[in-house]
Structures are given as C-alpha cells and as structure tokens.
Simulated assay, not measured.
Amino acid sequence: MIEIAAVYGSPRRQGNSSTLLRHAVSGAREAGASVTEIVLRDLKMSPCFEIYGCKEAGRCVIKDDYGDVEELLQRIDGLMLASPIFFYTVSAHTKILMDRCNSLWVKKYWIEKRPFGQKSYPRKGLFISVGSTRGKRLFDGALLSVKYFMDALDMELWQSLVFRGIETEGQIAESPASLEAAYRAGNDLVRALADSDHPDDDHGPPNDLQ
C-alpha cells in the first residue's frame, strides 16, 4: 500500500490551508493510500541549532518530537504539505520542520556523497498554500523552499496548489472548486505514485516550478 504523510503547517487548526489539506487527504485515502496526518502546531519541535551532530549518522541529535517525524519522512512514498504564506514564505511551524530536515540533507550529500543536480526522484510531493494578497510573486519564495526541502527527501515537487486572496478563517469553504481541486490532487498523487515505475506514463499535473 502506498504510504503518504500529510503535514499541516498552519498555526490555525481550522485554517484555510488545513481545510484544503483535509480534502487532499480524503482524495488520497479514496485512492487507496495509507495517510498519516501530522499537525505541526501540536508537536514539541525545536529549531535547528546547526550543531551538526547529524554528521555522524545522518540523524538529528536533538531529542524531541522531530525524531518520529524524521522516521516517517524517510519511510513514506509521498508527502502532502500545507502552509499559509507569511512574508512570502511558509509558516514558522513549517520552516522549523524544513530546517530540522537538514539532517537528511547532510545524510544524502555529505555522508552518502550523492551528486547534486538529481533529476529523477523516487518519491513525489504535493504543496498546498494560501496567501492573503494577489501579488504575482506571492508564492515564489515558498515554492523554492519547498522544492529544495523535498530534494533532501529524494522527492520531487510534483504539484503545487496555491490560492491568492484568502485571509479570513474559513474563507476557502466559499470556493467549492478549490476544495475539489485539493481532493483531486490528493487522489491524483496516489495514482502518480502507483505509476512511478513506468516513467513513460503521464503521472498527472507537472509542478509549478519550471
């Protein structure tokens, strides 16, 4: 069975990005995947201290809830990550997770000495985000951060769903088309992962970073 982690990065439990992710989770489960949901605001997770204890074994040496998350991130087939935009990047909760995954970057590039510039990834990720303004470059910073975060996980940013002009809690519920798009993306992600052994097949929507 395909295993997916769904990571909620919003500081609001009922935030708009969280609502979208819940619909994506429903779509993924409907397609037959096992989905583990992680609410970052509920975890005790320190920022990275950059002490590089991970240079020995490629594992973070800080003892907190990140240890269980790290194990899950190394095991899953796919990832669904949702965060609102704060100052043109992801939420603080999400950024802490990304920074703690520096241990996996160290493992991949320093310990295993894999070459940079990998083009073929065995795993796939979906990023969902909302922002309150309508600026053309509103999501640029977050998308770059997520792309290279997923690279450390041997994962491609397979698709991103981003929605502008969303601010007040619950506002996304006024857009059934957005909720349906999230459900469909979760469903399609599972199908893309199931087809990943067939590189000539159409695996679904391309990511938004070209």
Rank of each mutant, 00 (worst) to 15 (best):
I172N: 01
K44M: 00
S34E: 10
L179M: 07
E180N: 05
E174L: 11
K63W: 08
E70S: 15
P84N: 08
Y66N: 02
A57L: 11
S132D: 08
A152I: 02
I85Q: 07
H23V: 01
G32K: 10
V90K: 14
K124Y: 07
T94Y: 10
D188V: 01
S17R: 07
E112A: 05
A24R: 14
N207P: 12
Q171E: 15
L143M: 13
E70G: 10
G135M: 00
M80C: 00
S103I: 00
L189V: 04
M80V: 04
M150I: 03
L73S: 14
L143P: 15
E180I: 04
D195F: 00
I51P: 07
S34V: 11
G170F: 00
Q74E: 11
I38F: 08
F127D: 11
P122G: 01
D202E: 06
I76G: 07
F139T: 02
R184P: 01
L73C: 06
L97Y: 10
I166L: 01
L79F: 08
P205Q: 00
Y66M: 01
E71G: 14
K147M: 04
L144Y: 14
F139A: 01
K147E: 11
T94P: 10
E30A: 13
E156D: 15
L209V: 14
S145M: 10
R41V: 06
I96P: 14
K113W: 11
K113V: 01
R123Y: 08
E156W: 12
G78I: 04
A82K: 08
K124G: 06
G53S: 07
L189Y: 12
S160M: 03
A173I: 14
P84E: 09
S145W: 13
Y183M: 02
L157V: 00
D208G: 15
E156L: 06
I111H: 07
F86E: 00
Y52K: 02
A142Y: 13
S91T: 12
G165S: 05
H203F: 02
P122C: 03
G67A: 11
V146Q: 02
V190A: 02
V130H: 00
A185N: 05
S132P: 15
M155D: 09
E180Q: 13
L189W: 10
D99Y: 05
Y88P: 08
P205N: 09
D151W: 05
P84H: 11
K108Q: 12
D188L: 02
E174M: 08
D64I: 05
A173F: 14
G117F: 09
V61H: 12
I76V: 09
R123F: 03
S26G: 06
L126R: 13
E156Y: 12
D64W: 04
D65S: 05
F127Q: 12
D208M: 07
F127W: 15
G135N: 02
T94S: 12
C101H: 13
N207S: 13
A173Y: 15
R22N: 15
G53R: 13
A152Y: 15
